[in-house]
Design a protein around this nucleic acid. Sequence first.
DNA 1: TATTATTACGTTAGGCGTAAAGATT
DNA 2: AATCTTTACGCCTAACGTAATAATA
Lengths: 284, 284
Amino acid sequence: MLNLLELEQLIAFADFGTLSKAAEELHISQPTITRTMKHLETEFGVPLFVRGKNKIELNETGLKAVECARSLLTAAQNTVQQIQTYHAKLHTLTVEACAPAPLWSLLPLLSSRFPEQTISSKLSELSAIINNVASGICEIGIIPYPIAIDELVCIPIIQENLSVCIPLNHELASRKNLTFEDLNGFNCLLASQIGFWTELCRQKMPASKFLVQTDDFAMKELIQKSTLPCFTTNLATDSSSILSGRSIVPITNPEANVTYYFICKKSDAKYIVIAKQLKTLFIQ
Amino acid sequence: MLNLLELEQLIAFADFGTLSKAAEELHISQPTITRTMKHLETEFGVPLFVRGKNKIELNETGLKAVECARSLLTAAQNTVQQIQTYHAKLHTLTVEACAPAPLWSLLPLLSSRFPEQTISSKLSELSAIINNVASGICEIGIIPYPIAIDELVCIPIIQENLSVCIPLNHELASRKNLTFEDLNGFNCLLASQIGFWTELCRQKMPASKFLVQTDDFAMKELIQKSTLPCFTTNLATDSSSILSGRSIVPITNPEANVTYYFICKKSDAKYIVIAKQLKTLFIQ
DNA sequence: TATTATTACGTTAGGCGTAAAGATT
DNA sequence: AATCTTTACGCCTAACGTAATAATA
């Protein structure tokens, strides 16, 4: 039976030209590699080298053997990786969502229901979410509208209502309701990592500039020390003290009041249970 | 680095169901295979088994690992065979001929000119000879007529003239010449392994039956003890005593007097030399 | 002289088998 | 009781490195 370590030595010899160099590179002694080359010849049953008194080189068969050895070795390495990724995929439950808020309720539920699974979540584009769930790249998706696809279930789970937080002395602060159209033109603070909301704001308020803050501390500072409008929702977990100096005004556009839908493959019954659980908690 | 022997044990376990059975089949002890399975798990870095107190079975990753191991193992076996056949092909000079006689001169020449090569020869159908030389499956071909193919050289080397051997008291024995048409209808003795001659006789003498003898001794006995016509040629090496009771009459059909052509790839200059050597010996 | 392959030899470590234990049916 | 896996232990082989040899450029 072939020994991959021996093939590795053969390849090293082919790469470095002499047994000495190869031995040095592999941190083994010359006699060892000499022995290995002889052993390889007996394993293959054919001569692989032309030997001079103090030189040795590959013959034509040897060159072919090196070529075969390379592909066999990479095949072996691929095998290991294949097994490892297979194992990882088997123990990873991947969630892709269009916004972070529904994950706050979903992820803890998944963790407790599937404690042996690694729960992996990320924000993605809407089309990517649907494609990846459909193709099995991820198991669960969260999208802000219902879809009807044969192999997928689509269950409403949570509603999120967007409001704008306006400093009390701002001209819009006294309004009971606002629309994107009212806000269009006012520059706003915006947190990063809010999924599809970012794009929605940009579309609905094309005349506004958005000051996107990646740092949470900076965001809070700016909310308190600036007069720029910012946003919150019914699901936001910010302590209310941060918004104490501001008026919270609901945005009435239908796009600002979304119902999140849980999607997964119909065959994944174990996940559907979770969705129904969320639905009973949050819808009605 | 993976060890193919260990993978073989994994496969044996998958095939035989228990470590004990697998150990027995592989003629190793149970502890050995237990150790190997553990070692495989550390090599892959992932669990492959679900273990009970006195039972062990493959988990899902393990099943995948077995599948991968199988393909890797067959790849390794293929590698060995590939190298061996590559070596064989490299050291084998294959000749395919339409008849045995030209080989009697050609093969000794090839053996002495290429002593390190294994000379392999066989009789083949005409179309197979040309195809195999053109495609590189064999290096040298011998055919009974010239051809013109771009990549091949075609050199006349030897002539063979067919005669019929007729008992002295036979009605045709006194003829100076004969044709296939004269012989048609007379049943004849025929040696086996005479290449295209067999088919030629059957075509030219459709009314005759041929008693094909595979055994050399039987052939000689029948020549001496029967009155059936048989054949010989100018290249035949049979001692003339065998044919002493018979009249040897040349057959005048052009098909019975062939010139053999040596064909090989134009790129194989080393073989062309041999052909020219034969040509000077036998032509003119 | 410096580099290279090979041979000889002594040592060591890793792998195997035996024996025993633990556990299940 | 029989079967199976795992652990413990001791042996032994097989592989490695050091040192020496031979040969070349």
